[in-house]
Nucleic acid binder design. Structure first.
Lengths: 344, 344
DNA sequence: CTGTTAGCGCATTCAA
DNA sequence: TTGAATGCGCTAACAG
């Protein structure tokens, strides 16, 4: 603070430009002056102010990931860590930093407007959210993650509806009718409007589709239980515990996130219910840690890491001014041992 | 891009100053002009450029967390997610964003010099690392995490040596002599010099201390096995698998991170070795997910979340120009069921 | 190879 | 209540 390019120029007996070149374009000045400038800079402890440099360059070398919730709650889902790893993997290699942005006072648009970044990755956004216009307004490149693609923006996701249907098929094929669905808690509370990413609807749609295919009666559908569960271990555990204690507990649980399933595993063990004999479980994600579960969890495998990677790659293309299209990532069901035939 | 404060001033028939006031100091202008300006701004889709604003304000509302490794490898340890949550919890509430910075081309000092942030949290730094001078040079507030405190800077950590000794006591008291130590892989590869945070040495010191107290002979100490294990599930699993397959496998494992223990649990299960009968395990961390392990893992409990919180709180104090001291967080051993008496 | 000059977009002191 | 002028620290086109 205080010591600027001007000071160095003065001490070195050159102009600011020359000093600037020394730092950004050494080839354009003589090795001699380069050395002199750098020596002085080192002595005085000078280095170009990154902010001023950014203002001049119009490049922050920084991308933002904006979350639908606060960092402390959202990162309780290990899924996010994986996503961040994917994002980081390409940022690292491009020399970019990644800024984690949460809604400022619950206002995502403000966050977007204030972010000093070259591009943004955003989650939990519906296709007609106002954020889209905000992005246009700032002419800020952005890629959505897990949004329902409308063609108006670039998104990275999986075939949620289709996969959800298949997952539901498994439960139904095994005779389960009393099923509990752990939905991801709606994020509306932190946004101005009830804003939902659309994966929730897509997956529910898949579920109903499966039910229809299996000719479930209206009465049978009434046995479905829907609960909004935050995607955190402790919340899921609490909910699971109280749910499984009940006499009329479900025979199967359909989780929207692995971390919810973890909670059920733990609660089941606590209550000496065995999986899958007493309780069948399926879920979405198949995080790396999920492989440590016994018995193995039958779930939709998707790579959050790859999702982050892909989204970031696309974002960089956009930042580079190239056109790009939404991507639908591979995902499939991994059959393991958490589902059993219901014998009644 | 393109549309600036000047354009708005022009359209509204006022000066740039007035427009600036409208956005930052509405009280200083008449409600009338305020409305007019804002309406125009909304129509045209204008909002102040965050970067120019930052240059003027000298405040980025952004702090950085600099990692000793790339994001994609470092975040494989769930410990980091917890830490980030803690950091985020106070940033969220202060309206700050957090930037995840990894060493640019392996040079941490460059990363520090180039970061557009108001303060920095940094991990994996030894007490006489050159980064300290770099920070002084930029007069950038910073707090180290898990560094060995020398009094010259502000650090947040736990009593690694003491806790490590106690943990080792448990193993030794239970008769274990053939012990494998999973060290955290040195981070030196990504830094110019072999730079180690010091917790590694502290913990090793605690271990030797315990051995000494237990009067282990030199020969017995020779049975100790040290392996550098990246703090990732897959690496730990691989290492565990090959290690446990051996005839002369250790009777106990001392992990420096929960995630390493996860790998051993999984490998043990795969090989039908039961914990703790066939293999005792202890570790550091006690992450939230660790509670899902069966049998329960005996380990040093520390809260990465609180660590992140505390470090960030201190950082904010420093940013505010206040003086502050290093903090030593509470940590203790959580006794569960992963250690058994060795019967030979 | 080096210097002059003009921004980058906004905040803010000072004067009106 | 509003405006003119200046500065934040750096980059880069243009000249020499």
């Amino acid at each position: 603070m205080g010591i600027t390019i001007k000071d160095i120029a003065l001490k070195a007996g050159v102009s600011k430009t020359t000093v600037s070149f020394a730092f950004n374009n050494p080839d354009r000045i003589s090795a001699d002056t380069y050395e002199r400038i750098m020596t002085i800079a080192r002595e005085i402890g000078y280095s170009p102010d990154p902010i001023a440099r950014i203002l001049s360059n119009k490049k922050t070398k920084n991308i933002g990931i904006v979350l639908p919730q606060t960092i402390s709650v959202f990162f309780q889902n290990p899924y996010l860590g994986e996503l961040l790893r994917g994002i980081g993997s390409v940022c690292d290699q491009e020399g970019f930093a990644v800024s984690v942005l949460s809604p400022f006072k619950g206002i995502v648009t403000q966050t977007i407007l204030n972010a000093a970044v070259d591009g943004i990755l955003i989650m939990g956004i519906s296709k007609d959210s106002e954020v889209h216009t905000t992005f246009k307004q700032r002419t800020m490149p952005y890629v959505t993650i897990d949004a329902v693609d409308s063609g108006d923006f670039v998104n990275v996701g999986i075939k949620d509806e289709e996969l959800s249907e298949k997952l539901m098929d498994i439960l139904l094929d095994n005779g389960h009718r009393k099923i509990c669905f752990c939905l991801l808690q709606s994020i509306s509370s932190t946004l101005q409007k009830a804003d939902t990413s659309g994966t929730r609807e897509a997956r529910l749609h898949g579920i109903f589709q499966s039910a229809k295919q299996h000719c479930l009666s209206e009465d049978e559908m009434k046995d479905f239980l829907y609960i909004n569960t935050p995607a955190t271990l402790s919340d899921s555990y609490d909910i699971a515990l109280s749910l499984l204690k009940k006499k009329d507990r479900p025979s199967a649980v359909f989780c929207m996130a692995d971390v919810q399933a973890y909670g059920f595993y733990r609660a089941a063990r606590e209550l000496s219910l065995s999986i899958p004999e007493d309780l069948s479980i399926v879920s979405f994600d198949d995080l790396p840690l999920t492989e440590t579960l016994t018995p193995g969890l039958t779930c939709v495998h998707q790579s959050a890491y790859e999702k982050g990677r892909m989204a970031t790659k696309l974002l960089f293309k956009m930042i580079a001014g190239q056109h790009c299209e939404s991507a639908v990532l591979d995902a499939h069901i991994t059959h393991r041992h958490s589902v059993a035939k219901l014998n009644k």
